[in-house]
Computed example of a mutant assay.
Amino acid sequence: MKLKAIGLMLSSFLACTLSTHSYAETKDDVIKRGSLKCGVSSDKMGFSYINDQGKWSGMDVDLCRAVSAAVLGSPDKVEYITTTSKNRFTSLASGEIDILSRSTTWTVARDAKLGADFTTIWFYDGQGFMTRKSLGIKSVSDLNGATFCLSPGTTSEHNLADYFSARGLTYRSVVFEKTEELYSAYQKGRCDALTNNITGLAARRTLFKSPDEHVILPEVISKEPLGAYVKQGDNHWRDIVTMVGYALIDAEELKVTQANAKELASQTKNVSIKRLLGTDGDLGAALGLTKDWALKAIQATGNYGEIFSRHVGSNSPLKFERGANALYIDGGLMYSPPFR
Rank of each mutant, 00 (worst) to 15 (best):
A259V: 08
Y246E: 15
V244Y: 00
A265V: 00
V175I: 15
P225L: 09
S74R: 11
V174D: 02
C38N: 10
R33S: 13
P152M: 07
D292F: 08
T107R: 14
T206M: 11
R88W: 02
K138T: 15
D212E: 15
K55I: 07
L18V: 13
S309Y: 07
V40G: 08
S35F: 12
D250G: 06
P225E: 06
R110L: 11
W293L: 05
E157W: 04
I249R: 07
V140M: 08
T105S: 07
T26N: 10
G227V: 13
L201Y: 06
D98Q: 09
F208V: 04
H158S: 12
S222N: 10
R310V: 10
T105A: 12
A193G: 10
D280G: 00
Y229K: 11
N196C: 02
D282L: 02
D250H: 05
F339A: 06
I307E: 06
P338W: 00
G302I: 04
L36K: 08
R172V: 04
I137F: 15
D330V: 02
G34Q: 03
E157Y: 11
D212C: 04
G73Y: 09
P211F: 07
N51T: 09
I81T: 05
W56R: 09
G34L: 00
Y246V: 00
N159E: 14
G73N: 09
F148C: 07
S101F: 04
R190E: 14
T199F: 06
E306A: 06
R65D: 01
L289W: 03
K2A: 13
L194T: 06
M243Y: 13
V40S: 07
I121K: 04
S42D: 11
I137W: 14
Y183H: 14
I221K: 05
G58R: 09
M130N: 02
V67E: 05
D330Y: 13
G332V: 11
G168S: 10
C16H: 03
G227C: 07
N315S: 14
E253K: 12
Y163F: 15
T279H: 05
P338H: 00
Q187D: 07
S74E: 04
P218E: 10
A261D: 01
D52H: 10
A297W: 03
N197G: 15
K319M: 07
R205T: 01
G200A: 07
Y124T: 02
K113G: 06
K2G: 02
F176Y: 15
V220T: 11
D60V: 02
L201H: 06
Q299V: 02
T104E: 13
A69F: 11
A5L: 15
L283T: 03
Y304F: 15
A5R: 14
L63D: 02
A161V: 09
H214K: 02
N270R: 04
W122E: 06
A185Q: 03
K86C: 01
A70D: 08
I6V: 13
Q187L: 14
I81F: 04
V220S: 07
T242S: 07
A185F: 04
W106L: 12
K113Y: 09
P225W: 09
A326R: 12
Y124R: 05
I99C: 11
T83Q: 08
N87Q: 00
K296P: 01
N235D: 13
P338A: 05
G46I: 06
F13W: 11
N270E: 08
V271P: 11
F176K: 12
L264F: 04
D43V: 06
D239K: 14
R238V: 02
H21S: 08
